[in-house]
Nucleic acid binder design. Structure first.
Length: 199
DNA sequence: AACGGGATGGTT
DNA sequence: ACCATCCCGTTG
């Protein structure tokens, strides 16, 4: 079994973590079934100078875990769905990386059932889609993902992505700080979300 | 208590 | 382009 990414990996600036997560495997054992996918799209949300970050303004009940340890899951509800993030940096610094798309690997049949679709492409492309596929909901909020229990990330030497295979763009769906280049995708990967011009 | 806007996604 | 759906932060 490949090594699980540990806290020191996440205890860095979110744009660095977002970049380095590309090519690694997000794994879930939720529901008693292993489901996983290769991370192909991420977004960083910064503690400073980023008005789109949930923790940018005030420390509220919703964003509390963002101010805790690196490597903790931050799951928030939006439009009756969920998005999965990993907290970065040290305590008291509110920032995170949003996982936006995976290339399906393990548990494809379970993911198809959970998603209610048959198309591989529609299984884990999009932040709320991959949460449904991996059975990530609000009960995952605050869980430690540096141990292989519910949800974790696996990486080895083969999971690193060359710089010329990485594309950096503006983030999707944000209505402020739109110009910040904090979205990271594996170039030309068919499981990346969003409009074609951002792939 | 009420209100308005989402780090969405599926349909028209 | 539209909107289902519901949670959360803000305001009164």
């Amino acid at each position: 079994m490949p090594p699980t990414l540990r806290r020191s990996f996440y205890a860095q600036a979110p744009d660095v973590v977002a970049r380095n997560l590309l090519g690694t495997m997000l794994v879930s054992r939720r529901g008693g079934t292993r489901t996983s996918g290769r991370i192909v799209e991420t977004e960083a949300y910064l503690a400073e100078g980023d008005s789109a970050c949930h923790a940018a303004k005030h420390r509220t009940a919703r964003t509390e875990v963002m101010f805790g340890s690196a490597g903790i899951a931050y799951v928030y509800p939006i439009h009756a769905k969920f998005c999965f993030n990993i907290v970065c940096e040290t305590n008291e610094i509110g920032c995170a990386v949003l996982i936006r798309a995976l290339e399906p690997v393990d548990g494809v049949e379970a993911m198809k059932t959970r998603r209610g679709v048959d198309s591989l492409r529609r299984l884990t492309t999009g932040p709320a889609c991959l949460c449904q596929a991996l059975e990530i909901d609000r009960s995952v909020n605050g869980l430690d993902i540096t141990t292989p229990q519910d949800v974790w990330v696996e990486a080895n030497s083969k999971s690193s992505v060359e710089s010329n295979r990485v594309r950096v763009t503006e983030r999707i769906g944000v209505t402020s700080a739109e110009d910040l280049l904090l979205r990271f995708v594996i170039r030309d990967n068919p499981f990346v979300s969003g409009p074609a011009r951002l792939r």
